[in-house]
Each structure stands twice: as C-alpha cells, then as structure tokens.
C-alpha cells in the first residue's frame, strides 16, 4: 500500500489562443479558442512511507504539475490520486495538514515582515502547541541555522537565507509527506550541502520525500529511487542503483601515452572498448561490467607506455542528459 498513490493521473491544460493586448483579451471573452495541452499524461506512481524519490525530467515535462496534483492545488482531468488516504483535490485542507511543500522558485514568507512573523502565522495555521513549536524552531535552527534569520525582513534575505527560511516554513509542522520542487535552485555550494544534509536527516526521521530537481547532486545525495518523466509520461521508475547499472555502464579512462604509440594500435588491441583521442591523449570508454579498470590498463601497457591516467566514474548525470536529449529510450 503506497502512502502516495496516483493512477493514470492526467492533467490537460486548455491553453487559450488569443491576440495581443487588452483587445485580444476582450475579443477572447467572446470568441474563445483553446488548444489542449496534456501536461501530465497517464502517470502511475506509488510511493511507500519513508521513501525518498527523485522526480526528474526536462523543463516542461510535467514535474511541477504532478506535484500540484498531489497537493490538491490542481484538479486532475482524469485518473485518481490518494495521499495518506485523502483525495487531495476533494479534501484539500485535510491533505494540507499531512504535507509540507516547498516551491523553490517562490517564497511563502511575508515579504515586508520579519521571518519570525511568517513562522508564527504558520504556527497558528497548523494550530501547533507552544512547546512543540519551540522544539521545532530549535531543531530547525540546528540544521538550517534559522535562528539568526528570525528578526530579518524576508525581503532582506539573500537567496540562500531565503531558501533556508522557506524550508523551515515548509517543515515547521513536521509533515509526514514532503514535496520539494527545486529546493536547491540558485544556491551556492555551501548552502546546497547544508540543505542536502538536512534532507538526508529528514529521510532518516522517516519522512516521505519527493524531490523534483535539475541538480543531479541532490538526487545522488538524497534519493534512493528515481522517476523520470518526459512530455507528461513516466519513462523510468526504479532504484537509483539499478538505473546506474542499466544505463550508466560506461567508465572512461583517460591516458597520457609517453612513447608515441599511435591510437589505432591501442584501438586494435582493445577491440571491445571504444578508443578515441588526439595525439598522446587517449580516452578509452568501456563497459564496467565487461572489464575492470585493471584489465584495461594492463592491456594498454602491453602495447604502449603510459605516463598519467585517470578514471571517470559513470554519473547519473550522463544518463539523465541522454534521456533529456532523447538519445536514450529507457
């Protein structure tokens, strides 16, 4: 039984086709023309309690729309959603109590007031007891350092500070299910690390986590499962490790040849690997399940002298890049 379940979830947007300016708008009131655009197209997802899932896809793939359907913000065109036993768009408020949401590109803080006030409002919205609220603030201060941000006007925060405060706001009521839409967008490396560490702790606490991101570091650091969607359809759903095994098999060895052995000699010798390069710099791409790095270097040393070498490990990035570019049909 999944905690978050979606079956054949579909959302079709009717995009108005209208002329420019006020005139176009007014004309549109009388002469309505629309185009149907499916943003999410028959997606099945089931997420167990305590799972951390990366939800990945190119821009416009339907990631945010899916999250909004799961939050009850959008009403599905067809299909069903159930989150912790609640249908979000039918009982939005009951669902809202179970979830914490961060839209990285938007802030939920009150712009002209100190951060403390926004958090105080959330305390009242979720009806948190005073002791619990204090305890949460202390905890969030430990991991996100929001204590120093409390008296600052939200509009005076830097992007990294804003994101920390917004994360605190999304998680203040200790929700069971957390959706994070681009939680590290625009952050510098130090803050990113902090946020990721926090997300790992959140997962360790048993929170169910769904993360949409373009930052593959987020995924590798935080998630054990990955769902890839493209054009509103799910194209991969499985453990991150399995995805790497299936689609990121290629390791790359970069060598500096010191004795001037031509590349094609090496290539001829290593018939099962892909050899490329220029002059003395040679790159050998090989299947990590077929050969070890030791076997490759031993084979090269039979025909050439090697000065320096280093190895690129397969990255999830390569896979996702290929999927985005449409090179890989998963």
């Amino acid at each position: 039984m999944g905690l978050v379940k979606a079956q054949s979830l579909t959302k079709v947007f009717r995009r108005p086709q209208k002329g420019p300016g006020l005139r176009g708008s007014v004309k549109h009131l009388f002469q309505r023309r629309f185009k149907d655009v499916p943003a999410v197209n028959g997606i099945d997802v089931s997420i167990e309690a305590g799972e951390a899932v990366a939800y990945v896809g190119p821009n416009g793939a339907g990631k945010s729309t899916t999250i909004k359907l799961l939050c009850g913000i959008l009403v599905p065109t067809s299909g069903s959603v159930e989150v912790a036993g609640v249908t979000p768009h039918v009982d939005r408020i009951a669902n809202a109590r179970n979830i914490g949401v961060l839209f990285g590109q938007r802030s939920q803080l009150w712009w002209d007031l100190p951060v403390r006030e926004s958090l105080g409002l959330l305390r009242d919205m979720y009806d948190l007891p005073k002791g619990f609220y204090q305890q949460r603030i202390e905890r969030l201060d430990e991991v996100l350092g929001i204590g120093e941000l409390m008296p600052v006007l939200a509009r005076k925060l830097s992007l990294g500070q804003r994101m920390r405060a917004d994360l605190a706001a999304a998680l203040l009521h200790q929700p069971r299910i957390v959706y994070l839409d681009e939680p590290t967008i625009g952050l510098d490396i130090a803050v990113k690390d902090k946020v990721r560490k926090f997300l790992r702790e959140l997962r360790a606490d048993g929170t169910t986590l769904m993360l949409t991101t373009h930052d593959l570091g987020d995924i590798e650091d935080v998630c054990e499962r990955i769902i890839i969607i493209d054009e509103g359809r799910k194209i991969f759903d499985g453990p991150l490790a399995q995805m790497k095994d299936s689609f990121a098999r290629t390791r790359r060895m970069h060598l500096h040849i010191t004795d001037g052995t031509p590349m094609d000699v090496i290539a001829k010798h290593l018939s099962t690997a892909d050899v490329s390069g220029e002059g003395s710099e040679v790159t050998i791409a090989f299947d990590r399940f077929a050969h070890t790095a030791g076997q490759i270097i031993a084979a090269v040393l039979q025909v050439a002298e090697v000065g320096e070498f280093h190895l690129d490990e397969p990255a999830i990035e390569d896979v996702v890049r290929k999927v985005y570019a449409g090179e890989l049909l998963v």
Binding site: C71, I73, Y126
Partner: peptide, 13 residues
C-alpha cells in the same frame, strides 16, 4: 504570478 499555489498548500480557506 502563481503564489496561489503556495496559498493552497495551507490548511486554511
């Protein structure tokens, strides 16, 4: 500007 999305994740009318 789409802030309505954040508003709607809150347990209030």
């Amino acid at each position: 500007e789409g802030h309505v999305a954040t508003d709607l994740t809150k347990p209030v009318d």
